[in-house]
């Protein structure tokens, strides 16, 4: 029962990622694309968890935390770039 459910869940999440990729390509503004890419990262975490259930190994569980951290850092960086135009401010006096 568990294997069938894991396969169905993988299929459903793949369909969800296809919807999000459509939004990345089509999205009229830049924040749309960033939101969709962040959601793609979260869905990738779900796929890694389900594949590690399917393969019955716990070797991939570090990657879950890694992908989550990278998705968060990427989204914060993009939002700072969209808001201020720079990512790392060198001039600390004129903030």
């Amino acid at each position: 029962m568990l294997e069938i459910v894991v396969n169905i869940a993988l299929l459903v999440i793949a369909i969800a990622m296809v919807c999000l990729i459509y939004r990345v390509i089509k999205g009229p503004t830049m924040p749309d694309r960033v939101i969709a890419l962040d959601a793609i990262g979260i869905n990738l975490v779900a796929i890694i968890a389900l594949v590690s259930i399917m393969l019955k190994t716990s070797a991939f569980l570090d990657i879950i935390l890694l992908v989550a951290i990278l998705a968060f850092i990427g989204t914060v960086t993009f939002s700072k770039y969209l808001e201020k135009g720079v990512i790392v401010e060198h001039d600390r006096r004129n903030r």
Binding site: P31, D38, I64, L65, F72, L82
Partner: peptide, 25 residues
């Protein structure tokens, strides 16, 4: 324990990322 850590991390950071990108928009 890494899975619990990932759960807590995602639960904290995902709304924060949503707030930041919304504010930038």
């Amino acid at each position: 324990a890494r899975l619990i850590l990932a759960m807590v991390f995602l639960f904290i950071t995902s709304p924060v990322a949503g707030h930041l990108i919304n504010r930038a928009a």
